[in-house]
Simulated scan of single mutants.
Amino acid sequence: MASSPLKAFLRPSDEANMTLVEHLDELRSRIIKVALVFVVGAIFGWIFKAYVFDFLMAPAPETMDETLQFTSVTDPIFTDLKLALYTGLMITLPVLFYQAWAFVAPAVGEMGRLFTYTLITLASLLFVGGVAFGYYLVLPIALNFLIGWDPSRFSEIITAEAYLRFITRFLLAFGVAFEVPAATFVGAKMGLVNAEFMRKYRRHAIMVNAVIAAFITPADPFSMIMLAVPLVLLYEVSIFIAARVNPAVEETLQEALDDEGEELEDEYEEDYDRTGGR
């Protein structure tokens, strides 16, 4: 019996020993699937562009009115097109995650459908969580700080293109930054990282997180701290995930410590017997 279109859409690559042409055909098929979802998402974004616009304007400070300026005749329509494309990208990301993993999964060994669905769900939820965190907690503070900087000397004339470019890149950056646990999940499953390695380089990771937060957020300390702190917490969560997903290293380390302890205990008993307890 022929498979349904949905099953064909979600089907991972089954052939581990495909030829180059077959690999390219598989890649083309998955790119087409992602592109179709993106087009549908962009059409959806175009239909509801006014709602998307209002949603992105909500975090702006009260000093800004409900409209944005434009300096070119074509700016309004191109801004709406960019909003539609941005909406399509947000809708497409879970499908992109799945199709990318389904393509590379056979090359790294059989991971199983449960692992694949768990990974895609985790990656999608983390991305949405990062975007929501940036939108509801960090963005209002950042906008108030930046737009309200020294109003006695500066008065804002903010164009739609500049404002929406800043907002969309800001939120996408938060979504990507929150993917650390999902990346750790994959790395631990493939044996590339483990909890002991991550604990060893914890201090280095904290410094890297601070640098990432400084680059992603605007030039104010509040936004930087509000991203750096969750990144550190996500790193600790990643250590926990690595220990659960790849426990073999932890067990080997514990066995080595136990063996070393037994050797020290045997040496102590031998010294005790040789010296007669002295």
Rank of each mutant, 00 (worst) to 15 (best):
L257N: 00
F185C: 11
M64V: 10
W101R: 07
V208F: 11
A60R: 11
A188N: 03
L125Y: 04
G112W: 06
F103K: 09
V34K: 09
L264N: 07
G109M: 06
L68P: 00
F78T: 03
F185P: 05
I147L: 00
M57A: 13
G148W: 03
A214C: 07
A173M: 07
Y268N: 12
Y98G: 01
R153K: 14
G277Q: 01
G129D: 02
T63F: 13
Y51G: 12
L85C: 14
E26S: 12
L146E: 09
W149F: 02
A107I: 00
E262I: 14
S72Q: 10
Q99I: 13
S155Q: 13
E179Q: 08
D25Y: 02
P59Y: 14
T252C: 04
L68N: 04
F154I: 14
A210V: 10
T87C: 05
V232H: 02
A2L: 04
M57V: 05
I43A: 15
V104F: 02
L146P: 09
V40S: 12
V39Y: 14
A183T: 13
E260P: 02
E255A: 02
L253V: 03
A35Y: 05
K200H: 08
R30Y: 06
T87M: 09
D150V: 15
W101E: 10
W46R: 15
G41N: 06
F133L: 13
R244G: 06
T19G: 15
V108N: 08
Y51M: 11
F48K: 10
P247H: 00
V249N: 05
L171H: 11
K189W: 02
T19K: 15
G187M: 07
F53Y: 06
D75F: 05
L81T: 01
M224K: 07
M207K: 10
E26L: 08
A100M: 01
L114T: 12
L264E: 14
A142H: 06
R113Y: 05
A213T: 07
D14A: 08
S238F: 05
L264T: 07
A213F: 12
I157G: 09
A214H: 11
V21S: 15
V40Y: 04
L56H: 12
T159Q: 02
P218A: 10
